[in-house]
Amino acid sequence: MAAEKIGANFKRNMFTENQVLRAILGICSSLAVTNTMRNSLVMGLGVAFVTGLSSLTLSAMRNIIPHRVRMLVQTLVIAVYVIFVDLLLQAYLPDISKQLGPYVGLIITNCIIMGRAEAYAQSNPPLPAMFDGFFAGLGYAMILLMISFIRELLGFGSLFGFQVIHTAPENLWTIMIMPPAAFFIIGSMIWYISARAAKKAAAKAK
């Protein structure tokens, strides 16, 4: 495989092959943490950081990992980085650590991380693998922020905790705070993106 340029890697992970919208990975956390933009941002950055570093490490070891236990090793490496991020937050950003509570530990269950390790890191050199992981995490963060923008604005009337719609709480859209709202929003986004991709493919085929 010819080496992919960083710019192309970025574009692929952010847009054309966005992990949430095109690969439908990382959906569970997309439903759960997207009711406020702040939580989405920290979760997105946490995933980007862990995906980047675990892809780097796994790619560096790709030639010595026995093939039949590669998933065990992936899990092990990802778990180590997640615990590391958790400790780092507890030591230096205690407020954010408290806010995110159980979600930091749940980064490990994010399918995007193992997805990138399987799909890219095990067959590419360390540096491109790191960028690939990091960009995949950023693509995830971007989608999370888009969803939480809609949900926080309509559900709480605020953005990043700042009140922008001044109205009585009963005028706000309570379902936007609950997970089903994300379900509908992600569904609509996937629908739109897939329809567009299908149109493009059809135009190309002509």
Partner: peptide, 25 residues
């Protein structure tokens, strides 16, 4: 052997990191 060595290495690294962060935590 690979699994044993890699697990020991990573756990050791994590334990060291925890010891380092413990006072701040």
């Amino acid at each position: 052997l690979f699994m044993v060595v890699i697990t020991a290495l990573l756990v050791f690294a994590l334990a060291a990191a925890y010891e380092g962060f413990k006072p701040a935590i």
